[in-house]
Design a binder for these strands. Structure first.
Length: 220
DNA sequence: GCGACAG
DNA sequence: ATCTTGTCGC
């Protein structure tokens, strides 16, 4: 972690602004061989973070890491990154494989300051990232696309991501670039990772399960 | 006091 | 996110 991660909301606002200015919404990856996914489960004052690396072709799990830490910030809407990103950075450093793309449970640029968790992480780690969230932020506006189950998400007149509902049995998910990925690719790169049996892309689903399992075992 | 927005 | 029983449905 670098030396000036924000410690107050005031600092966080300024930090998000700087992060947003560093985002690159262009595809900088030639081929997606490995995909990483990170998620966190909470219990009282502890955060149980899990990271997983998956082979994009075989879906094989190549590496797993977990890390427990003290919660440093309460959950405040639009400032989720304060709670989660430090753990993600730590996980990435513990993992030996550098993934081509990282999936984060939360928003990327689909955020009032264009700096959600996936974006802050992607910029700090300088790695391609995509945010996938289960709920929208209230500021979103939507425009239908040519595909029924896909709507474009707009924020301040800007196209920032997608609302995706492939299956009417599941609630929609909200996809947006974190960093080093175009808005269009934030969807196309991960479309094949949505399995009918899971609500989230398979790697994120696994990371979520790993974090939950880690939390439960830690309590024992 | 009002209003409410990822995890 | 977590706290939580039974119940509906594939």
């Amino acid at each position: 972690m670098n030396s000036h991660f924000p410690q107050t909301i005031r600092e966080a606002k300024d930090f998000q602004k700087k992060i947003a200015n560093k985002v690159i919404l262009e595809d900088m990856l030639s081929e997606i061989t490995t995909i990483g996914a990170f998620d966190i489960s909470y219990k009282q004052d502890k955060a149980f973070a899990a990271g997983i690396i998956i082979d994009n072709a075989t879906e094989e799990v190549l590496e797993e890491e977990v890390i427990v830490s003290e919660i440093q910030f309460p959950y405040i809407p639009t400032f989720l990154f304060l709670r989660e990103v430090p753990s993600f950075i730590s996980l990435l450093s513990k993992i030996s494989i550098k993934p081509d793309l990282v999936l984060i449970d939360g928003h990327g640029i689909a955020h009032p300051k264009n700096a959600g968790s996936a974006t802050v992480f992607g910029v700090l780690a300088n790695i391609p990232s995509i945010g996938v969230a289960k709920k929208p932020l209230k500021f979103f506006e939507y425009k239908s696309s040519e595909v029924k189950y896909l709507k474009q998400v707009f924020l301040n007149e800007k196209f920032v991501g997608y609302k995706y509902q492939p299956n009417t049995n599941w609630n929609p998910v909200f996809i947006s670039p974190g960093n080093l990925v175009s808005v269009e690719s934030s969807f196309t790169f991960i479309q094949n990772l949505f399995k009918s049996r899971f609500k989230l892309p398979a790697p994120l689903h696994k990371a979520h399960n790993l974090a939950t399992q880690f939390r439960i075992e830690h309590l024992t």
